[in-house]
Design a protein around this nucleic acid. Structure first.
Length: 616
RNA sequence: GGGACUGUGGGGUAGCUUGGUCCAUCCUUCGGGGUUCGGGACUCCGAGACGCCAGUUCAAAUCUGGCCAGUCCCA
């Protein structure tokens, strides 16, 4: 939707030098817009042009006196995002116009033809000259991003675009291009995943992307859950394939036939392997960069364990690994065991990792599944136990994706744009020289020295030596989410001590001679502050509800007592217009007492705390 | 699966109702020059688009048909 904008066409028809009368016909008149239009015209007036305007009334009673029409744009153009438009009739020789600076530009160029600048810029149509009035007060700062709290998805999309993390112009729905900047973020993110999963004894592998339909179909629940969203490869060149191939939506069915060959003995267990590959799902809902895509950048661990207890232990180990990953991302989250009807297709149970993202919305960051023997039986993954018996393995999986990047944007981002924790920031530090006519070469030399010094010490630093003005660079890198900015002007060059400003606004000085240490400290402080901000939002994101009626229009994720029945679960989902996410796998942010009676049926027997929200 | 809507430079848009005033406007972007540079500079010169294919017409961004792509709503 974007910023609220209206188009009001105020058509006056008197020649310049007379009064132009503006008014709105009754029901459509928008006084605020009229006021803005008048403000605009007053600006013209103040520029000593000879247009005079008055309002005759909003009921249209006197509209025949020069005022022809006032209406919202959507009636005519069907376009959203148009700025207010004022059409003022003027004599062609007496252009009414203001200086360019009078009309603020819209953020990232959306809307605002804003051409009330020069006589040449004003367009003429059927004898009238049109002036465009942006939907913002004159002299206001450049338009902000949409409001995160009230227009979350608009805000999110604007931030993703403005921070240049992806290019969405690729002509296939749900498939975005990773830009150099976005790819840097992704690579850092993956590095954290690799570090933490390998610390638990998992090894990287890579399986093919194409899966024979015969293998894909072996586990009934699994195929039922996925067959509506797989891409098929049915031809090789001009020939139809005997056995069609599935482009992996996830890799169970690619890996498990091979696991059956790999696992022979209890000595082969546990088998813990992971891969980071692209998977494909034909999403039918609206796609969103990082959050819902058709080509998924996917981390998936698959393990085989000797028995259910070991598999349960692996689930715990994955939960602990994710805790460390989330620590690096400064992301608070809640592990939630999904209800039966919402578990992964084929799983014994599923634990999802959910992050609240405001207004009762939640974002699933990943999931950990316990499969028991559900896949090992159809795929024949068996081993010979020490006692000589043949046993089926118990399996687990752990899946994460670029949604983590979406979550980082969604959780940490603010009114200025993205904010990256230092562990994933494409650039941790941006160094901005401030030349100035009297400063000479000092600033640039010092900035270069500082950047090189940071590079030598393994910090991701970027020298922005472009010839934009410093202020423009500040805004750009703030939007892009860089944690720390170093400013190097004449003062800094002379004193060999740089000005630092972190993305949350904390300012300071760092000595060039101890640069890497002081920058590392600043980044650590920044990460702590970012975490604290996220934690505060997390704590405020939950509230309890004790009746179904309370769930309607929830503005936080709700904690409710639930008897565990599917029927009550669905009633809860209907009440909140979202989903019953399940039961917390770890303690809630604020300790709660015993759950009372089920919010849906009132049963006290076996009730437990459950989480309900509206997943993105 | 059903319905509605929308396609104009890299991004955002105007023009379409009533075909010609439009080798298509403005902002932004991009290339070049100059003055600048401590929070989104100014200025000059230049570059860049009517989704595709037909049809109607003296004339099509505009009207008609088909196709393609996208968005939203409902199932």
């Amino acid at each position: 939707m974007g910023p609220r904008e209206h188009l009001v066409e105020l058509v006056g028809d008197p020649p310049v030098g007379q009064d132009a009368d503006l008014a709105g016909p009754g029901e459509r008149a928008d006084l605020a817009l009229l006021a803005r239009a008048l403000q605009f015209v007053e600006q013209i007036d103040r520029r000593e042009e000879r247009v005079r305007v008055g309002v005759l009334g909003v009921d249209g009673a006197e509209t025949d006196r020069g005022v022809q029409d006032v209406r919202p744009s959507d009636d005519r153009t069907g376009h959203r995002g148009l700025p207010a438009e004022v059409v003022v009739s003027v004599d062609r020789h007496d252009q009414a116009h203001g200086p360019r600076s009078m009309v603020p530009r819209e953020h990232n160029g959306s809307g605002a033809p804003a051409n009330a600048d020069t006589p040449d810029g004003a367009r003429r149509s059927r004898g009238r000259t049109r002036y465009y009035v942006p939907d913002a007060p004159f002299g206001a700062p450049m338009a902000e991003l949409p409001d995160k709290r009230t227009a979350f998805m608009d805000w999110y999309l604007a931030v993703v675009e403005a921070s240049q993390l992806t290019d969405k112009r690729y002509p296939v729905k749900g498939m975005n291009v990773w830009t150099p900047y976005g790819f840097r973020a992704r690579r850092q993110l993956d590095a954290v995943l690799v570090r933490e999963i390998e610390a638990t004894g998992s090894a990287a592998v890579e399986f093919p992307a194409l899966i024979p339909s015969t293998e894909f179909a072996k586990e009934r629940e699994h195929i039922k859950g996925f067959d509506a969203q797989v891409y098929w490869v049915t031809k090789g060149g001009l020939t139809d394939l005997d056995i069609p191939l599935v482009l992996r939506p996830t890799s169970e069915t690619a890996m498990y036939p091979i696991f059956a060959v790999w696992v022979r003995s209890h000595r082969d267990l546990p088998l813990n392997v992971y891969q980071i590959v692209n998977t494909f799902r034909y999403e039918t809902k609206t796609t969103r960069p990082f959050i819902r895509v058709r080509e998924i950048h996917f981390f998936e661990e698959h393990t085989c364990q000797a028995n259910e207890a070991h598999a349960t232990e692996r689930v715990r180990s994955n939960l602990a690994a994710f805790r460390r990953m989330a620590e690096a991302f400064a992301l608070p989250y809640l592990p939630i065991r999904r209800p039966e009807w919402d578990k992964f297709p084929g799983a014994f149970y599923s634990v999802a990792l959910d992050a609240p993202v405001g207004e009762a919305r939640t974002l699933q960051l990943g999931s950990i599944h316990h499969y028991r023997e559900n896949f090992s039986r159809p795929y024949g993954i068996r081993y010979e136990a020490p006692d000589g018996s043949q046993q089926y393995v118990h399996q687990t999986t752990f899946g994460l994706s670029e949604r983590l990047l979406g979550a980082i944007v969604a959780v940490h981002g603010d009114a200025k744009g993205a904010v990256f924790p230092s562990a994933v920031a494409p650039y941790q530090v941006v160094v901005i020289p401030i030349p100035g006519s009297e400063a000479g070469e000092g600033p640039l030399r010092t900035a270069t020295e500082a950047t090189e010094r940071l590079h030598r010490h393994g910090l991701r630093a970027h020298l922005d030596g472009g010839d934009e003005r410093p202020g423009a660079k500040y805004y750009r890198w703030e939007t892009a989410g860089v944690p720390l900015r170093l400013e190097v002007g004449r003062r800094e060059a002379d004193s060999r001590s740089l000005t630092s400003v972190d993305r949350l606004g904390t300012k300071g000085r760092v000595a060039l001679d101890r640069l890497e240490h002081e920058v590392a400290e600043r980044l650590a402080e920044f990460d702590r502050a970012l975490r604290a901000r996220a934690d505060a939002a997390f704590a405020a994101a939950f509230s309890t509800a004790t009746s179904l009626a309370e769930l309607a229009g929830s503005t936080t994720v709700r904690i409710v007592a639930w008897c565990g029945s599917e029927e009550c679960g669905h009633r809860i989902e209907t009440a909140i217009d979202g989903a019953l996410l399940g039961t917390p796998e770890e303690p809630l942010p604020t300790p709660l007492g015993d759950p009372g009676p089920c919010v849906a049926c009132g049963a006290t027997n076996g009730s437990r705390w459950a989480v309900a929200g509206r997943p993105l």
